[in-house]
Each structure stands twice: as structure tokens, then as C-alpha cells.
Amino acid sequence: MSDNDNGRRGFLATGATMAAGLGFVAIAPGIRLIEIAQARPAGEAASSAVRWGMLIDTTKCASGCDACVSACASENGIVEQVEDPAQRSHWIRKIDLKDKQSGREHSLPMMCQHCAEPPCVDVCPTGASMKRADGIVLVDRHICIGCRYCMMACPYKARSFVHEPLTEQNPEVPRGVGCVEACTLCVHRVDRGQLPACVEACPEGALLFGDLGDPNSEISRRIAQEATTQVRADLQLNPGVRYQGI
């Protein structure tokens, strides 16, 4: 560990140039940056002053549209064709809802809700399920043993288990057989100041991404002023993803 401290300190000085130097990290042209928060400088850890969240306006979400789902799939390289549909990975999915009494129908995207009190993190035996300082719930697949207890614990069915060896991964989004995975809120994009792929792809602008920790952010202001819903609020998990129009 100590051997690397030198490297790290040295790197802090040159960090910015390095970041631009590697083809991967360079920001592709033409991609909107998040106005409210710039890319975190290289070498800086995620901060607990920030809490990333999303507000989804289901009144704008069309039932047949799955632009967010396809954007997620291509961004995160979820392209494998697993034969059994029940064994496929779903980081985000569209749910069509119909009120049993009134018959009102609507549609919404469902993914990891990035809870402040995530049950998956509580139950994970190794600590692979984790919440980053800025509220993003991730699976550290370097120590995930594939026990799937988190999948039993998640009330949103947001997690998937990779049932087959993969080869087509996006280099920025490693994923592989035998581990559990879920929406990362496009952590690799967010860290360099881009929006999550689904947010960017929504043709109706139904998805708003932002910092719940900043009272002046658009998302915080809207949550303060408008009626919003937490899915399964009864469990008091304080999800980072909020809905309108459910």
C-alpha cells in the first residue's frame, strides 16, 4: 500500500494532464456537461456533500417508448443474447402500470433507486454492495462472490446476476459472469461531468438528474415544490430516484 502513495502524490500534480492524455477519459465532443456540477478533478474522491439523484416525470413517459432502456444497454454494453429472458440483465426496464380501481394507465422506467439506506448493502456478506460517498449504490465486483442475497433483499428487483461469460464489454463498464450488477447511474459518465445515458436519451426530457445535496439544484428545488413519490416509501429507504405522476 505504502509503495503506491508516492505514485499517488506524484500523480496529483500531473493528474489533469494525464486525464486528458488517456483516450478513454477524454470527453467525447458534443456531449452536454451537467451544468450544476462539473467533472470532478482527477484524483479527487467522490464527496459526501453531493447526493446524486433523479426525478422522473411519469406523465411525460410514453408507454411504448424504451429510449432510456436502449441507451442504457448500448452505453453499458448490455448486448449479450441470453437465451432465457429471465436470465438476462436488466439495469433499467419500463414498467406499464394500471390502477386496479380507476383503470388509469401509465408507464415508467425502473432501475436501482440508489437508496440512502440500501437493503442490498446491509445484507451483502463481503461488503461488495456499497454506497459511494455521493450516494451512488454500486457492486464492487472485485469482491462480489455471487451469493445473490442482495437480489433477494432489493424491493425494486433492480439487480441482475450475470449468468454467462461475456466478451463484448464496454471498456469503461466492466461486467462479467458470476457477479451481481445493477444500474450504476452511469458512474463513469457522471464522474466526468456527463449525464447518465438514459437521462440524455429520453426524448421527452422526463428524467432530471442532479444533486439532491445541493438545495439550489433544479432537482432539489422541484422536489421541494412539487409532489413527488418514493417507490415503496413504506420501507423508508430514502431512494435517490423520485417519481412524479404515479
Binding site: 499517488r8 500523480f11 493528474g15 489533469a16 488517456l22 478513454f24 477519459v25 464492487d140
Partner: peptide
């Protein structure tokens, strides 16, 4: 050791743009 150390920094703490990076090695 470098790689294993870095992967925890990147994944768990969100430290990016480090000199050591597996994708960097590959490039």
C-alpha cells in the same frame, strides 16, 4: 499491487484520472 490498490480507489472512492489504470495499461 498497483492495480489492486487503484481499483479500490476508483471503484469505491470514485477517484479517477489516476496514472495507474487498467484501461491505461491496455491502451
Amino acid at each position: 499491487e498497483m492495480l489492486k490498490h487503484q481499483r479500490d480507489l476508483t471503484l469505491r472512492e470514485g477517484i479517477r484520472g489516476s496514472k495507474v489504470s487498467l484501461n491505461g495499461c491496455i491502451e
